[in-house]
Amino acid sequence: MSELTRRSVLRGAVTGAAAVTFTGVALGVPVALAARRPGGDTAGSVPHTGVEAFDEIYRGRRIQGAPQTGAGHHRGGAGYAVFVDGGELHVMQNADSSWISVVNHYETFATPRAAARAAVLELHGAALVPFA
């Protein structure tokens, strides 16, 4: 699915959500399911050449990150996936090459590893909800 098509589908779903008859989020259903995106791939990513993979235990939690190629776990134009204890953390790269995550969305970090570490602190041990 092309980026344009995928995004159009997403935005279509959002439009529906904002309209009168929205029923997508029953109580207790995490945002991940409500905002699920059809298709699994993304294109048009910010170039992330040179951003390295990592895999470490930080404050008792396993954080991993790696560039993604082909179909897989990358979302939001990142072309790079980050996990906390196996749960995917939505990350995004800014035009100045800094990074943010859905857990710290208004604060930029130099690397995806720094974003993952910040997420661990913010989570206080809580599990991420899968977003797709």
Partner: peptide, 14 residues
């Protein structure tokens, strides 16, 4: 839901 959907999909190069 609406806010989060936009914040996750608004990207600098798209």
């Amino acid at each position: 839901v609406t806010h989060n959907a936009f914040i996750m999909s608004d990207v600098d190069n798209g």
